[in-house]
Design a protein around this nucleic acid. Structure first.
Lengths: 226, 226
DNA sequence: TTGCTCCATTTTGTTGACAATCCGGCTCGT
DNA sequence: ACGAGCCGGATTGTCAACAAAATGGAGCAA
């Protein structure tokens, strides 16, 4: 979807991608228990590759599987969603620090350009928070890969983001935050451009902390029901 | 092995555990390419469950798989091992902080008792750094679960520790560090007992940072060849 | 009526065989 | 002699049928 797979030749990879996007997009509701044969008919697969993909998904924590009892999409509680942001805070803080130390000048230029395009998108489609959500993901994606920390990027991109995005589609970010978030992004990039890792880490942690508090507030207001 | 699986009924789980421990213990050398049928005969399995386990292992980053070309155990470079410690630093720092806020009094008592038994083990089998390594793992394991952060514990226990342990068996920790590490552990537990999350986080980060520097130094000395 | 037990159906777990793909060695041409 | 193309063997990916286990309902007893 957003992360173009190099080449998906095998059926199992195909099944994996299909299921993953289906879960993230909400086509498969959290807590929903699904039979293997139904999934096979829905995605035109046989059970062999499907089971392999199921194993991968389970290992990533997107679904749980009880022996002989079937699989069901994982349902994350409000508390667990907030915990996810706590993890993001420290991990992306590290990513920002390492990105400041290791990103190439060209990557930093691209990053700035990305922010410019995000700003245009926000201005054009104001209120359409969806684009902001995608843009936000794009920003954090670049920082993660820019850290040159293979495992860190793998954990952020492969584990955390999918779980977060799973809820992004449901709870489009609040109206006021896109502009604020963009400003925070700009300051982070500035710190990276100045190769100030410590500052970049601090700003990134504060940025994600703000996002978490935003969600927390909405939950307390009863706007968000998870 | 060290983590008794609740109940491994399915063959795929069995295969997963076998392969995982085989990789961690070094029975399957990093970079070694292995055929599916050979694995089947070695662990008395059929290819179905094996492939499912292989998918899970790949998803966890313990082995890589090229379509139609076979699987090979992942080989981590020295730089990547150090990067792993950087990730541990921030994640376990968070775990320590949350553990200080959320562990029950009983869990803290158990944690102290664990340290006492570690001390005895170190005194009895001095030089035998192996026990220390296991004890160290046990300590960090308890902190991770004590954080009450499901995903955090899952990522630490399911992803990072296995990769770290993969090298622990090869590069038994240096002679002097066990005693020092134990002292650091004690101070961390003290901070947790006082419910001082901030201090616990700081101490844990410094503890892991020290371990990282220890490894880094040994690599530069040429003692460690990875 | 309520609870338990037993049974049948459905679903999962497993197996072995089949088809597609890649790697190594060989032959042939220049 | 050296490189390119080709073929055979082996290995992986896929499939459909078989066996085991659990859920749900029906029947019976209290």
């Amino acid at each position: 979807m957003v992360q173009a797979p190099a080449q998906v030749h095998t059926r199992a990879d195909e099944a994996f991608d299909c299921l993953q996007t289906a879960i993230v997009m909400g086509d498969l509701a959290p807590g929903e228990k699904i039979g293997e044969v139904e999934l096979c008919s829905r995605f035109n697969l046989t059970r062999g590759p499907l089971r392999e993909a199921l194993g991968r998904l389970e290992s990533r924590g997107l679904l749980v599987r009880r022996p002989h009892a079937g699989v069901k999409v994982v349902s994350v509680s409000a508390e667990e969603l907030l915990e996810l942001y706590r993890i993001r805070e420290v991990m992306e803080g590290l990513a920002a620090r390492q990105a400041a130390e290791r990103m190439t000048d060209e990557e930093i230029r691209d990053l700035k350009a990305t922010l410019d395009s995000h700003e245009k998108m926000i201005d054009e489609a104001q209120g359409q928070a969806y684009y902001q959500a995608e843009g936000d993901y794009d920003f954090h994606h670049r920082i993660a890969t820019g850290s040159r920390n293979t495992k860190l990027a793998q954990m952020l991109l492969g584990d955390l983001y999918y779980m977060v995005r799973m809820y992004r589609y449901r709870l489009s970010t609040s109206a006021g935050r896109p502009h604020m978030a963009l400003g925070e992004h700009r300051r982070i990039v500035e710190a990276i451009a100045q190769r100030d890792g410590e500052l970049a880490e601090f700003l990134m942690k504060r940025h994600i902390n703000a996002a978490r508090q935003n969600i927390e507030q909405k939950i307390q207001e009863g706007v968000l029901t998870i």
